[in-house]
Nucleic acid binder design. Sequence first.
DNA 1: TTGCTCCTCACGTCACGTGAGGTGGC
DNA 2: TTGCTCCTCACGTCACGTGAGGTGGC
Lengths: 130, 130
Amino acid sequence: MFQIGELASRVTLSLRTVRFYEEAGLVLPAGRTPGGFRLYTEDAVERLLLIKQMKPLGFTLDEMRLLIEAMNVLQATDAEATVRHEMHERLEMFSALAAERCRQLAEQLDVAKAFARTLDAEVARSARRR
Amino acid sequence: MFQIGELASRVTLSLRTVRFYEEAGLVLPAGRTPGGFRLYTEDAVERLLLIKQMKPLGFTLDEMRLLIEAMNVLQATDAEATVRHEMHERLEMFSALAAERCRQLAEQLDVAKAFARTLDAEVARSARRR
DNA sequence: TTGCTCCTCACGTCACGTGAGGTGGC
DNA sequence: TTGCTCCTCACGTCACGTGAGGTGGC
């Protein structure tokens, strides 16, 4: 069990961000010291790394929560069939969404590269003018 | 000369966004009707398309303003040498920044793709369990 | 006169950053 | 007791979205 400072530094996030993710229901501390200090286990590290991996896809924190919930239910062996079915459909929805976001990211990279080349050309052109 | 509605639809931005970019000093209307309606020329279209191209690089609106200013000064034939020099250095800075952001975007795309594959695998695994 | 477009506040949202003032824990 | 870490408000920021209430222009 470790405190928020170690958790934050291990996943390279700010304390504020970790607390904010807690407010959003994404990563709850495993417990608290009598004095009120948050205590975490390795699970929190993995959870935060998963969230960091989702970030480039542009999901909102609410969407991430729903997605993580679905993954957890489907991992569990004791989930009810109806719930499992619902979570499976949710997962499929997010999978399609993720694929779409990947396409958008690829487009953005192309646009960014094009603009970077334009800038380089401008720099070169401006250098010749001197 | 056309109104903000036509401008916005031609560059596929909201009216609010166009007005917000004006507040940020990015795109000023060429004039106003006596009644106060904003009037734009083709220049505004090109300006907004340029801004849209910069967006994937994650520049702030202030940075975009500085960058556009530098490009305009260097395009002009009547710019003072000292100002031209300053703007050239600014352009070089932004060019380096843009290259760095391209690298980051490429990394993000890789992370996104990896997560999308993970999701697909989870969907498949969950489907086999039924 | 009727719609449609536009106007200016101004508050809301999302994902945090940044202190302020106070206390826990070794 | 001294630092260092942590705590909870709570306001600020960035790039807009979203009405509210009113008016311009063909």
